[in-house]
Amino acid sequence: MAKSNEPIWWSLFSAGGVIAALLIPAFMLVTGLILPFVDSPDEIALRELAQHPIARLLLFLVISLPLFHWAHRFRFTVADLGLHGAKVLVAVLCYGSAIVGTVVTGYVVCTL
């Protein structure tokens, strides 16, 4: 048995878990349940708010880290719920999607 390289995924999972726990509920409330009910929201003001450097960083972290949190949790849950084979494939699909999502988010956030 050799020391595993799991720490990289576990630390991303943990960081994602903290961000998701602290910020996702509020984000869901704002964008999913308050914004739709605002009468003609000010698109320009919203875009300017999102373009602020701190907002860009925050949006990047709030999207990418929870994706890694999901990837790690989902990879293990899939095995728990019965899929015991194809462990490497499942891991590649999970972390792979999180990496792709992170890259796309990085691009979007930089070019807002």
Binding site: A20, I24, F27, M28, T31, G32, L59, V62, I63, P66, L67, H69, W70, F74, G101, V104, T105, V108
Partner: peptide
């Protein structure tokens, strides 16, 4: 959480 992140993106 992941689905929402995609929606946010």
């Amino acid at each position: 959480v992941a689905i929402y992140c995609v929606i946010l993106l």
